[in-house]
Design a protein around this nucleic acid. Structure first.
Lengths: 206, 206, 206, 206
DNA sequence: GCCTAACCGAGACGGTACGTCACGTCTTTTA
DNA sequence: TAAAAGACGTGACGTACCGTCTCGGTTAGGC
């Protein structure tokens, strides 16, 4: 699951001293602490992480191949768990999918981590791909399923472009996260977005 | 206008040898060349920019206080000029506002620069603020004006949240730029977005 | 002994990887090679020493705090070993003390190093003090002892100023090294000096 | 006389604005001021000299080809005037020749300049040659003449090596200046040296 | 009383070296 | 064998000077 399992290829039972999971946690916690303390991402070096976590540099490199790989796991650790979909109506499911994004925009911890690490990660295609595949894509797929179910159940017109619709839902959240990080996020923002987009898309409309 | 004007405080007539504009251009061109050549942003050091542009390091630091400030000006240099609004209908104006974003997503030059520098820049609040103030905010204001004019002219319902509407227009473009940089951008994407959002928002509708 | 031992303060057993003595030697050898090759002292930068020795700059700065400190150790490495005093007569001991100075004036290797580094070093009081304490002063003390022994043994008048005598012995060697580096140094120069100075100082003379 | 006359080769009468002698003086004074203020020689850059003297860099380079050439003129400016020789006895003339050296060792201004610049200069053979030719050699020649006159007038034995004798006179002064800059210089030091060396060299002695 | 060449101050310019820091790898000791 | 420690070669950082080169502005003759 985590990226931190790059033990050199071998099958047999682990030999020698086993890796300490506590060490692994303390490294990730160390990075988070630094980010929360307002240390700019660019100032977070492997060397500093090692000092903060009270760990040798080699111990970090044994687990991750570089800063970016480490940050992917840090970002994952802040990822809210996949939301439980009520499954009653399409509208409520869509809101349930959007709500965690809004909530994360509020939490200072997640927020500061997101805004920094996220941006950083993007400059490394490989790392971005890993994050996209395990975090972004699954959510996209879930949204697609919800929308298709809505079409099947008569809650959504058949002729709309599912992809564009998805982007219309996610867009405002992203705009606020990326372009206007200080924007206020009203409690019913997810509902506002969903209702505004769905307006005029009900099957009984022209 | 540019960030590259940090001459030490004084008012009188310029003393000493004036700064060469040609040098300024060749530095920015140098960064662009590196980005186009596929050099990862993280590998673009001031030292390398200086070598590429055939320029001393001090000449760069004389103009920009660091890598990020330089990149703001690079990003600005790729910014498409403010679009000419037809001014006939709100719909056409909105499309005219969105179209350059789509087009930039296509152009390899702008694209590669955007996708990297943009992300990088975000980690520096000060730099981001500068970019936001001179590039993002003005566009936002223009969109607001267009939408308000639409309400005045009866093209748009009075009760809609202008801010949310703006985010719905920009959102899909941003989603594709940030989350799915490889997405295809159909020629009529701007029109699709505008029409989809405006559907059901005409004043004569419920 | 050497100046290159500035490990950060601690007493316990050395932790971490120990410093390589081979590296230390190759740095000093590198400087000597440059000097022998006729590179002017002013053109010998730490950066160049590092390149020549195939060593990182930090590896040099880990051992010496700057160019001057490094040069002290280089100078020390060229220092001829303390001469063995015959111990038979004062005259022969004095000649034995002077002879290495003459010889060094001849050797091209030592000479070129001496003439440059020596001068350079003097501009840093701290560094000069270190060199004086470990190289110059001990020799001075030895000469004093020899002269006092001479007085005790009746080879030298009791009323002469030991200090001035010492300077009279060393002076001509220094004049030739500092003011006339191209002067010829006849084989019996040491004997000439000693005899000339001692003339008229034997106790049985007025 | 000074090194500061390197006007580009031309024969005719000076055209254009003539160089300001005041500027020349203020540059040399500036260097002296820095040295007296205890600024280490290595920290005295042309740029700093220019700032101190309130002068453009080019104005300095127009006169001297580099730091060392400038320092030669600074050193010359501190040189005590050639001593007046009494011309009565060889002994008194020799003392008169040595006395200025002792006196300079005492003066803080000359001393600090000497001890630094002198050392520095030696690393540039060309510059050293210039200084040697105009300052050191003439003095040496004068001493030779005095000694030869002494031989002619029966004050000195015929068989002594004039050159070695000269070095024996100068040596102690140099030893104290170069090796023991803090040494005390008794008022009668010159006489002590001369008398000690001449002892036993009078023609009526064996 | 102009003209013009060289001066002057200031400071930009392409460079090089500074001393520091982080990179990712490599020893070393200890557990 | 893992772990902490820290040395290692590499190379970027941002600063300071190098010696050269424009700038606008002065300051002398020579006409």
């Amino acid at each position: 699951m985590s990226l931190a399992d790059s033990r050199p290829g071998q099958a047999g039972p682990a030999r020698g001293r086993p890796r300490s999971e506590a060490v692994e946690r303390s490294i990730i916690e160390g990075v988070m602490k630094l980010l929360e303390d307002g240390v700019p991402l660019a100032d977070i070096s492997i060397e500093r992480v090692a000092r903060t976590a009270g760990v040798g540099k080699a111990t970090i490199y044994r687990r991750w191949s570089g800063k970016e790989e480490l940050f992917v796991d840090v970002l994952r650790a802040t990822e809210p768990p996949d939301p439980q979909l009520p499954g009653i109506s399409m509208r409520d499911d869509l809101i349930a999918l959007l709500e965690p994004l809004r909530r994360r925009g509020l939490a200072s911890r997640s927020s500061v981590i997101l805004h920094n690490v996220y941006a950083q990660m993007k400059s490394s295609p490989k790392v971005w791909a890993a994050y996209h595949a395990t975090v972004i894509a699954p959510r996209r797929r879930t949204t697609f399923e919800v929308l298709r179910r809505g079409q099947r159940d008569g809650e959504l017109r058949q002729d709309v472009d599912i992809e564009l619709l998805n982007d219309l839902f996610m867009g405002p959240m992203l705009v606020r996260a990326v372009l206007r990080p200080d924007a206020e996020l009203p409690e019913d923002l997810a509902a506002q977005i969903v209702d505004r987009v769905l307006e005029g898309l009900r099957p009984d409309q022209p």
